[in-house]
């Protein structure tokens, strides 16, 4: 498997963290995730597996209810531990999962989008997959559970995109946390859990 070797997540460590922070309820989900990361042959297959895994197993809720904060970016472990997440948590969990499965980072983008639902517009985040740099991406979204080409999503208007490329990872010094962006802070937390 192409992806398996690229990541060496220590699942026994993840499991003990899950147990101590969130209790035994979702240990099986973590194990399913572990299995997921080792499956899928092609990139398209991997996209589908990851997209449906999170869309199926994670329930949408907003940060205020989950974390008692207005906006909180959760790591994949936290999302799995809670079993709930908002749009960013879905996108981020999928992003990390695909990285672990060996998808190159430059094919993945986290994209802020304006989402139109009926007459309402809301701020939303999705994960985009670019098979080629100049291609129109495929969108992994939690509002629409199936993977679609961006051109088939007139309800979404992209605003800004980013990924981990060229991102300064910080010094790992916790005391200096306050001066990092939310993205950097998340990356540091993810790293401390064992992600790249």
């Amino acid at each position: 498997m192409a992806g398996g070797a690229a990541l060496a997540l220590d699942f026994s460590l993840l499991e003990s963290q899950l147990l101590s922070r969130f209790g035994p309820a979702r240990v099986n989900l973590l194990r399913d995730w572990q299995q997921l990361l080792n499956s899928g042959a092609s990139e398209q297959e991997k996209l589908k597996l990851v997209n449906s895994f999170f869309n199926r197993n994670i329930q949408f809720d907003d940060d205020q209810n989950i974390w008692n904060q207005s906006d909180y970016w959760a790591t994949p472990l936290e999302t799995i531990g809670k079993g709930r997440g908002d749009c960013e948590d879905f996108a981020l969990a999928k992003y990390y999962s695909l990285l672990h499965m060996g998808i190159p980072m430059n094919r993945l983008r986290l994209i802020y989008v304006k989402a139109r639902q009926g007459n309402q517009q809301q701020a939303h985040m999705v994960l985009a997959y670019y098979p080629q740099p100049n291609a129109t991406p495929q969108v992994l979204d939690n509002l629409d559970p199936s993977i679609k080409n961006a051109s088939q999503r007139p309800d979404l208007t992209p605003v800004f995109s980013f990924n981990g490329e060229g991102l300064w990872q910080g010094t790992g010094n916790k005391a200096a946390n306050s001066k990092f962006s939310r993205w950097q802070e998340l990356q540091m937390r993810a790293r401390s859990e064992g992600h790249r």
Partner: peptide, 8 residues
């Protein structure tokens, strides 16, 4: 990254 709509 600068994007133009959906495309990079």
């Amino acid at each position: 990254q600068v994007s133009d709509g959906w495309t990079q």
